[in-house]
């Protein structure tokens, strides 16, 4: 049953996500294939000798640099919105009359939405990770690389950390929707409000944790003191963040499940 539900859920939200993912990859590829001699950009004195690219290619290259950034953001946002709106539609709109009368336990329905969200997030993040490969020149890619160049461990940890963070955000949205619908009026407003509150509390707690951690582990104070902390430092930091998000998820999952169990539909 769980697998069947998963399949149906995924089928419903996947199209826009795949389209955005496709666009993201496309923009990255166009960026990659319009590469021209990098020395053009270094404002080197040799510049006047090394202009190979036509102005048009230069323009496109720069344009798609920005478009890629936009695509990445849009992809993430669309993924989250589709996840939330499917949840809302399936469990709190007229469709809920069908969902809740299917011969399936509510636990399983909840699990299917969480898994659907996870899969969608993984698709989203993996697309971005792979597309980032097109941006492997140091000075341009610094903002995009998950970590520094040639740091596979840092990149991997960052990848998982981002997946956990997005999952946490998705979970905040779910909890917000659940809590929002306990109000009789303006459920949409309250859903967003509650989601935002939970998210903010989570982030605040995370910052506090990081702060405490640096207090306990003086070597970590680099984070606050240097513009470019050491790789080990970053690795520890991101691992800590990932762990905190994982704990949040482990706590919120059963909490939401319990709330959903006793939810009334009106």
């Amino acid at each position: 049953m769980l697998v069947k539900l998963l399949a149906y859920n995924l089928q419903r939200l996947i199209k826009p996500i795949l389209i955005c993912a496709g666009l993201t990859v496309l923009t990255a590829l166009i960026f990659y294939f319009t590469q021209y001699d990098t020395e053009f950009i270094t404002h080197d004195t040799r510049t006047e000798e090394i202009i190979h690219a036509s102005p048009f290619i230069v323009f496109v290259h720069g344009l798609f640099y920005n478009l890629y950034a936009i695509c990445g953001v849009v992809l993430t946002v669309i993924t989250l919105i589709r996840i939330w709106s499917l949840f809302q539609k399936n469990l709190y709109s007229d469709e809920a009359y069908l969902t809740y009368t299917l011969p399936i336990k509510r636990h399983i329905i909840w699990a299917s939405h969480c898994l659907t969200a996870l899969i969608a997030i993984i698709i989203c993040m993996t697309t971005i990770l792979l597309s980032n490969l097109c941006f492997n020149q140091d000075f341009i890619s610094a903002p995009f690389q998950f970590g520094a160049d040639h740091e596979p461990l840092l990149n991997t940890i960052s990848y998982f950390c981002l997946i956990l963070q997005l999952s946490f955000i998705a979970m905040c949205g779910f909890l917000g929707i659940i809590l929002g619908h306990r109000h009789t009026k303006q459920t949409e407003l309250f859903s967003r409000l509650w989601g935002f509150i939970v998210f903010t509390l989570g982030e605040a707690l995370l910052l506090l944790t990081i702060f405490l951690f640096t207090k306990l582990n003086p070597a970590m104070q680099e984070i606050f003191q240097q513009a470019r902390p050491s790789i080990e430092c970053l690795q520890s930091l991101i691992t800590l963040v990932a762990i905190v998000y994982a704990i949040y998820l482990l706590i919120l999952y059963p909490v939401c499940q319990k709330l959903l169990d006793s939810a009334d539909l009106n």
Binding site: A96, Y97, Y100, T101, S262, D264, L265, N266
Partner: peptide, 9 residues
């Protein structure tokens, strides 16, 4: 009716 269908408790 909704009570019989577990839509309400």
């Amino acid at each position: 009716i909704k009570l019989a269908n577990t839509l309400l408790t």
